[in-house]
Structures are given as C-alpha cells and as structure tokens.
C-alpha cells in the first residue's frame, strides 16, 4: 500500500516539475498518434465516401471485412507492418524498422478500417433526401462526396477522434515496430509496460495518469462533437 502512495506522490512530482523524460515520451506519443490519425483520415474519409457512393459487386462483403477489422488486434497490425518493413520485407529498403515513421505506419494500418467504418456510418446517417437533393442540384460524383462529407462532418469527426483514441492507447504495434528505444521510439504505452516490469512504479503511474488524462480529453471532445 505504501508503494502505491509513494508511487503517486512521485508521479505528481514528475508531472508538476515537467520532468524532461516524461514530457519527451508524452510529446512523442502525441506526435506519432496525431500523425497516424491525420494520415489515416486522409485515406479513410474519401475512401469511405467512395464506398458509400459507388455501387459495386462485393460491397457488402467489403463492409463486413472492414467492420471485422475494427477489432484487429494491435499486435497483428504490428506483425503485418513488421513483415512489410523489416529488412527482408518488400519495403525493407526504406529503413523504417524501429523508427517513429514505422510506428506511424503501424498505427495507420490499425485505425484506418475503424475510420472507414465510422465514415460509412456517418454518411449513411445523412438522410436520403439530402443526398438526392445534392445529386439533383447537379453535383458530379466528387462534388457529391465532398458535400455529403460536409453534411456529416461532425459524425465523421467523431470517428476521427475514436481512431486517435485507439492509436494513442495501443501498445502492441508500437512495441513490435518501434522497439521501445529510449528517447527515440519510446511512447507512453511502451514505457509503462517496460517501467512496470522493471518495478519503476512512480514513472509508470505518472505516464499512466498522463495517458488517462489524454483519454479523458479525447472522450470529452467526442462528447462535445456528438452533442452538436
């Protein structure tokens, strides 16, 4: 029990004094996950729009696969990207293994299906008569997708935030691809895993509190967005 109280006290000290190691890990975590979310959005939102708009064979099957990938285990995403970018993989020449860029790529793979799925849900929430109106007003396919995404922007933003939440809290892909290199690829989740196993509880608790705080902010924004 003392250990825990001790841990929390030290943790608060680390946060309040803006301990360089803690801050470094936090900023790196935010940078990697925000980058992954941004890049995933650029892919997922237009792709979701296209899937929503176009009628093609296997559309239902594709959507089912996308939905199944919501629950893609983070270590599997990590393994998949590892196979691609490891030295002997097809993209080995890029030298992305054990780099933040590689981690961004891993998190993108993890959250893109979720964000496509959320985009699809958001777009199907736009009433049919709005869609008809847009097409009837003379929009071409690209303009239609863009206008409908605008109509559903709050719901889509909800999906983006959800994606960010999944990216920042995952540990499997970051560990496999990043390798938890101190000062380079060490992020909140991998640091907590390591420090806990090494018995360095105050640091773990401090990082955990920060992670919790970020999660709280994310859910608050999500709540505010959905209120609109």
């Amino acid at each position: 029990m003392n250990d825990i109280i001790e841990g929390f006290t030290q943790a608060f000290q680390l946060i309040v004094t803006l301990d360089p190691e803690v801050m470094g890990i936090t900023i790196r975590s935010l940078f990697i996950s925000l980058s992954a979310t941004l890049l995933a959005s650029i892919i997922a939102i237009p792709l979701g729009g296209l899937i929503h708009f176009r009628e093609f064979g296997g559309k239902k099957a594709l959507i089912t696969i996308i939905q199944a990938l919501y629950a893609l285990p983070t270590v599997l995403a990590g393994l998949f990207v590892f196979l691609l970018i490891s030295r002997s993989g097809p993209f080995g020449f890029l030298g992305l293994m054990f780099t933040p860029t590689g981690m961004i790529f891993g998190q993108m793979v993890l959250i893109t299906p979720l964000m496509i799925g959320m985009t699809l849900i958001a777009l199907s929430g736009v009433r049919k008569n709005i869609q008809d109106t847009i097409v009837s007003l003379g929009a071409d396919e690209f303009q239609s997708i863009l206008t409908i995404i605008k109509e559903a922007r709050f719901a889509i933003l909800g999906g983006v935030i959800l994606g960010f939440g999944r990216a920042i809290s995952e540990v499997g892909a970051a560990m496999i691809i990043g390798g938890n290199i101190r000062g380079y690829t060490r992020i909140l989740t991998t640091a907590i895993a390591l420090e806990t196993s090494q018995g360095n509880l105050p640091l773990s608790i401090a990082l955990g509190l920060i992670l919790l705080f970020i999660a709280l902010i994310v859910t608050t924004i999500l709540f505010l967005v959905q209120e609109r």
């Binding site: 009433r127 008569n129 709005i130 008809d132 109106t133 847009i134 097409v135 009837s136 007003l137 003379g138 071409d140 206008t147 605008k150 109509e151």
Partner: peptide, 19 residues
C-alpha cells in the same frame, strides 16, 4: 446524364436544406 441533369432542376416534396 450529369450534363442533362444540369439542364433541369427538381424541387422535392419535402425540400431538404443543406448546411
């Protein structure tokens, strides 16, 4: 079809307002 559609306009029974 788009070119032809742009020569017409339709008002629906329950008009929808865009954002």
């Amino acid at each position: 079809r788009l070119q032809l559609r742009r020569r017409m306009s339709m008002v629906f029974q329950k008009p929808a307002a865009l954002r």
